[in-house]
Design a protein around this nucleic acid. Structure first.
Lengths: 258, 258
DNA sequence: CGATGACTTGACTGCTGTCAACGTGCGTGG
DNA sequence: CCACGCACGTTGACAGCAGTCAAGTCATCG
């Protein structure tokens, strides 16, 4: 099933802003879930008014009620160290789920804040759990998404623990590129919705280092950068630079169920 | 339900090496799971012969069939970078689950190798999934464990990204201490089953740096170290040193279900 | 048009990695 | 039992990458 299986899905009109036409369709939860089941999932999902830039989706310590799926825009998640220092933990693009780290503790350990105008779907967790017990495909998807998150975090740990500044930024850009492509956007041109400071903070680098590296990469002909806009000129070489397995997931790799 | 609810569970004798008497009881999966359900869980779990030091539980790329719970001993998980460089991703003590990162891809992205004589429980994943759909408490536990893993990985990302060498090692030791205590072992005295090299690799430090820090910490009266044996003398100050929220989880914090 | 915040660039410092030598404990074999 | 080898760990000297401090540029917005 390499092509969109939209036709498998019923007329979109009878569903308001439903999961099917949501771009998450192939990326977010609904995989291995049929039409009727999708309706049930859709029924529990709450679509909220868009967040404006800088607005919080939730804050540290907020009671955990729901997961959120980014529909458009982008978020950053972060905490404050006890000395008031911000610690950026991640950036979240459309099709990605936020809040998985809050299930265990019942409270959000991270705050989530929009980097631009951003709309999200709210997925009440108790409902999702109930539904998951009834729809095997959904349970599997949920576990898969969480597993993927663990996998991604592991990758990030390698990057932070073992890589040089150069490699970190290269890996970050290649990673973003992959995520944009999977989302249907250009893999070679995109806008960074986050500041240099956020990037540096996330990568464990000073913002000056990030800035210097951008110019160095540009001088090396790896990319073109203009303010927020990035154009990857030599994705290949940038990949090698990152010193990691940039095995570009052609289609987010198959789903493993038998 | 602040106190142990062991009495809620039936006489332990009628189960061979079952989950109840396994120390994982309160730590591993079975929480919010009653006797009959525990039996069903127990039935799918396979106890294997112990691994000797250096033996692999699984290797990178092995097809994912099962999760594993460490019963005794310890494991390290790691990958190789393309240049053959080992990258230690984590250490796993009794009561901890290994393999959660393999669900998404269907293959183990990490290898797991025992650091000492180690026994594990094998939990076939398809069975666990089936059972989870039937036992709400188990599904919730599984999600909780995965969420906790995500949370822990996030913590590690902060440590790797933002902390100095000193802070990293301090955080590592305090973290180990917490994990030992939760497991019923001494929080102030323990043996490191991993080498200095493994620790350094894990923390993104040179092994020489780790060694230097151990002696520095000892000179500062924070701990006593003799080869593999560690005795924490001033856990308090070590905590502050780590620059993190060392809010010692008195009892791994409550379970959030309503 | 000026103010503000984001970004860039430069100079200098210091933490931590690298290289290297040495010490220590343990297992093996004479 | 002792000598030896080997892996692991400790300590020292030195260097380089990246952080910090500081100044300057650029874009956006009131």
């Amino acid at each position: 099933m390499p092509t969109r299986k939209l036709e498998k899905v019923v007329s979109l009109k009878d569903i308001k802003v439903a999961c099917q036409q949501c771009s998450l369709n192939e990326i977010c939860l609904p995989v291995g879930v049929d039409q009727q089941e999708l309706d049930r999932l859709d029924a529990i999902i709450d679509r909220k008014r868009p967040l404006t830039r800088g607005e919080h989706l939730f804050r540290v310590g907020d009671p955990f009620q729901s997961l959120y799926a980014v529909r458009s825009g982008s978020l950053k998640t972060y905490t404050m160290s006890e000395d008031g220092q911000e610690q950026v933990m991640g950036f979240h693009l459309p099709g990605e789920i936020v809040g998985l780290d809050a299930i265990a503790g019942g409270r959000h350990p991270l705050a989530a804040r929009s980097l631009e105008t951003t709309s999200v779907c709210e997925i009440p967790f108790v409902d999702l759990e109930t539904l998951s017990a009834q729809i095997p495909g959904l349970q599997h998807e949920l576990l898969r998404v969480m597993s993927q998150e663990i996998r991604d975090d592991e990758q990030n740990m390698v990057i932070l623990g073992q890589k040089s500044a150069e490699e970190r930024l290269a890996a970050f850009l290649v990673g973003l590129s992959n995520r944009f492509r999977r989302r249907g956007f250009s893999a070679t041109q995109f806008n960074l919705s986050m500041s240099r400071s956020d990037i540096g903070n996330y990568l464990g680098l000073a913002l000056e280092t990030v800035s210097r590296l951008f110019t160095r990469f540009q001088n090396d002909g790896l990319l073109r950068v203009d303010r927020k806009h990035i154009e990857l000129l030599d994705r290949e070489r940038l990949c090698e630079f990152s010193g990691a397995q940039c095995a570009q997931p052609t289609s987010r790799s198959a789903h493993p169920q038998a």
